[in-house]
Simulated scan of single mutants.
Amino acid sequence: MKKFAVCYQASFQELKHVKTLTTAAMLMAVSVVLGYFTIEAGPYLKIGFGGVVNQFVYYLFGPVAGAVYGGVLDLVKYVVKPTGAFFPGFTLNAMLGGVLYGTILYRKPLTFRRALWADLVVALICNIFLNTLWLSMMSGKAMMVLLPMRVLKNLIKWPVDAALFYLIAKRMESLGLVRMIRKFQAE
C-alpha cells in the first residue's frame, strides 16, 4: 500500500511542474489530431490511434497526472469533434484509464508483459464493462446486445495496442527521448 501512496504522491508532484503540463499539452494535441484518423466500424465500435500517445503520458507522468490528462483530453476531444451527445461517464472512463495505466506503468521498468497487463486491465474495466454500460444507458439497448462485439474488438485490439505502445516507447527510450523528457521535467 505504501508503494501506491508513493506512486500517487510522485504523480501529484508532476502536476506542479509547468514543463509537465506543457509536455502533456503537446502530446494531447497529437492525440487530438490522431483522433481524426479514427475508424468507425459501426455506431458503437470505434478504432482509434490516439491511445498510444495517451499511454505514453500515463507512463511518463503517472496516475494522478494521467487522470487529469484523461479528463481534460476527453473534454477537449468533445469540444473539437463531438461525436454524439456528451456523457460524463466517458470522461470518468478516460480519467479511470489514466489512473489504471499510470498505476501499472509509472516509474516501473517497461516490459512487454507490463504493457500487456496494463492494456488488459483497462480493456476489461473501462472498455468492456463501463463503456458498454454507458452505451447501453445512452442507447437504451441491453448491455448483452452490445457486449459480444465490444469483447471481440477489445480481445483483438488488446495485444496490438500493447505491442504498439511497447515498441514505440522502447524505441523512444533507445533514442534517449524518454530520458530527455524526464531530464527536461527535472530542470
Rank of each mutant, 00 (worst) to 15 (best):
M1E: 08
K2F: 04
K3C: 00
F4S: 13
V6R: 12
C7G: 01
S11T: 12
S11I: 09
K16G: 04
K19Y: 10
A24M: 15
A25H: 11
M26P: 06
M28V: 09
A29L: 04
S31W: 00
L34C: 11
G35V: 01
Y36K: 06
T38K: 09
T38F: 02
E40H: 14
A41N: 08
G42H: 10
P43F: 06
L45N: 10
L45G: 01
L45C: 11
K46R: 15
K46E: 13
I47K: 03
G48Q: 04
G48T: 07
F49Q: 03
G50A: 12
G50P: 06
V52M: 13
Q55Y: 07
Q55H: 10
Y58G: 01
Y58H: 10
Y58I: 07
Y58Q: 03
L60D: 01
F61R: 06
F61Y: 15
G62K: 00
P63D: 11
V68D: 05
G71H: 04
G71R: 02
L73N: 03
D74M: 04
Y78R: 10
V79I: 12
V79A: 14
V80L: 13
P82A: 09
T83D: 14
T83S: 15
T83A: 15
G84I: 11
F86T: 09
F87D: 11
G89C: 13
F90W: 08
L92W: 02
L96Q: 02
L96M: 09
V99A: 02
V99P: 00
Y101C: 02
G102P: 02
I104V: 13
Y106C: 08
K108Y: 13
P109V: 11
P109S: 14
L110Y: 07
T111L: 09
T111K: 08
R113E: 12
R113D: 05
R114H: 11
A118I: 07
D119T: 11
L120T: 03
V121H: 06
V122P: 00
A123R: 01
A123W: 00
L124M: 12
C126S: 05
N127M: 10
L130S: 03
L130D: 01
N131V: 05
W134P: 03
G140Y: 13
G140P: 08
K141Q: 14
K141D: 04
L146E: 06
R150Q: 14
K153D: 10
K153W: 07
K153Y: 08
K153V: 05
N154M: 04
L155T: 09
I156D: 09
P159E: 12
V160Q: 07
D161N: 14
L164P: 00
F165K: 00
F165P: 00
I168P: 00
K170D: 04
K170C: 06
M172L: 15
L175G: 05
G176R: 05
G176L: 04
M180F: 13
Q185K: 15
Q185M: 14
Q185T: 10
A186N: 10
E187I: 08
